[in-house]
Design a protein around this nucleic acid. Structure first.
Length: 438
RNA sequence: GCCCUGGUGGUGUAGGGGCUAUCAUGUGGGCCUGUCGAGCCCACGACUCGGGUUCAAAUCCCGGCCAGGGCGCCA
């Protein structure tokens, strides 16, 4: 096996164009395919986002080099120095006549799956050999899109003068109720992996930083086993002081629309690779009240009582009516967490909202309770013990402004951007009920 | 956690009590100077595990493990 030495890549595949005829280039990548026709050998060299044909006719290339090419195996890593040749017969109208080929690392055979996608592999097989799966442009395009989306989200929030924060992922409390937590050993004590930055970002509202965001993993020990749940996911969390639910709904829809526009403008190749035509939604997004949704769902023949959370059947029913992005607001206080503000004039209804895309919930948020005594009352009414929230509650006793915020699931949003039907497609190394490796 | 379905070469599959276990792709070798899902020839490579029924089990039955789908759970 050879080292790089003074070889360096001069171009990526995609940058090699017909108008570069007779230029010398150095490409580095993986052997995608070898077609040996005897007197002429075609090598397809693949790199991060393209494939270039290396053509070795016996008349133009030395015997020694031909022999070396014959030793190459699929998915081996090579560096090729050669001359660009314009050719109507080559894919993309351009090929490279090699002068030197350096084998940087030979690949073993047979491969655990087929990166050329002639034979498809199941998701389980693919995730076991994810490094190889990710060499497929159709697969790595999803992550280029996810990256661009996160970049766009950061740009948007930074422009609005949000401050990026980092809250702890090792937490003491298992008493928040709701979701199951992953217990861990913290020296001589038990601790947990954080399920949400919720309580921390709210405490930030009492610090005068006013507008904060965090993009970080959340951990949930639920034994769910569906195409849209993960046990480790990335949450895009925002909290804003001196704002109400309507303010942060506008922020959310503007951010989502902007991210979609950004991805559409900057990820054209990737979207084409995965066959997705993105539509930038118009703002404001449609807004439905929970009570309307109950009626709509029942009209569709799916039984849903007022006060119940949306069942999967209910989500699907409403998803058939609402095609794109839309909000559901005015949820019953009873099915929303303690920190959600009840409507002052009608406390049975809360100032909470969900952002949906068709039948998929991608975000939920609310105006929060900023009044200490009301918060304690709400904690009690949820059957929780206020004593275990002392450090959180203290932030509400010395000047907590009214505030609102939301959390947006990065993977679920990526599903919307890429059309992925399985959320595992949007995570490099997903963690689900059974999978903990690689 | 519940329900349904499945587990056959490296990958993806056909078969569904007894024949040399099908096909594609792949891998190894050979032929071929314009391939682009290259083509042609030769070879290689598999029945999830444990128990049971049977003269005989990849096939039927029971259980485990694993996977796919649906649901539930998801402050």
């Amino acid at each position: 096996m050879q080292s790089l030495g003074d070889w360096r890549r001069t171009h990526y595949s995609r940058q090699v164009k017909p108008d570069m005829d007779s230029e010398k280039v150095t490409l580095m990548g993986w052997i995608h395919e070898i077609r040996d026709l005897g007197g002429i050998i075609f090598l397809l060299l693949r790199d991060r986002d393209g494939v270039t044909q290396i053509t070795a006719p016996s008349k133009k290339v030395s015997k020694e080099l031909i022999e070396e090419i014959r030793k190459l195996r699929k998915e081996s890593v090579v560096a090729v120095k050669g001359t660009v040749q314009e050719s109507g017969k080559a894919p993309g109208g351009v090929e490279i006549i090699p002068e030197e080929i350096e084998l940087l690392n030979q690949s073993q055979q047979p491969l655990p799956l087929d990166p050329t996608e002639k034979v498809r592999a199941e998701i389980d097989t693919r995730l076991d050999s994810r490094f190889l799966d990710l060499r497929k442009h159709s697969v790595n395009s999803i992550f280029k899109i996810k990256s661009r989306m996160l970049h766009s989200v950061r740009l948007f929030l930074e422009e609005q003068e949000f401050i990026e924060i980092n809250t702890p992922k090792l937490v003491a409390s298992a008493t928040e109720g709701g979701t199951e937590l992953f217990p861990i050993t913290y020296f001589e004590r038990e601790a947990f992996l954080g399920q949400s930055p919720q309580l921390y970002k709210q405490m930030m509202m009492a610090t005068s930083l006013d507008k904060v965001y965090e993009i970080a993993p959340i951990f949930r020990a639920e034994e769910h086993d569906t195409l849209r749940h993960l046990n480790e996911a990335i949450s895009i969390d925002v909290e804003v002081a001196f704002a109400d639910q309507e303010d942060v709904m506008i922020l959310l829809e503007e951010m989502v629309a902007q991210a979609i526009k950004d991805v559409k403008e900057n990820c054209g190749e990737e979207l084409e690779t995965i066959g997705v035509e993105l539509e930038v939604p118009e703002t404001p997004f449609p807004r439905l009240e929970y009570a309307e949704v109950v009626d709509l769902v029942n009209a569709k023949g799916v039984n849903l009582r007022y006060g119940e959370d949306l069942s999967r059947a209910a989500e699907k029913a409403i998803g058939e009516v609402m095609d794109g992005y839309y909000f559901i607001s005015d949820w019953p206080s009873e099915i929303k967490p303690f920190y959600v503000m009840p409507r002052p004039e009608n406390p049975q209804v809360s100032l909470a909202f969900d952002l949906m895309y068709r039948d998929l919930e991608i975000s939920s948020g609310a105006m929060r309770v900023h009044l200490h005594d009301l918060l304690v009352e709400r904690i009690k009414s949820k059957g929780l013990n206020p004593d275990s929230f002392n450090r959180y509650l203290a932030a509400f006793q010395y000047g907590m402004p009214p505030h609102a915020g939301w959390g947006l699931g990065a993977e679920r949003f990526t599903m919307c951007l890429t059309g992925a039907r399985n959320i595992r497609e949007t995570v490099l190394f997903p963690r689900d009920r059974r999978r903990l490796t690689p």
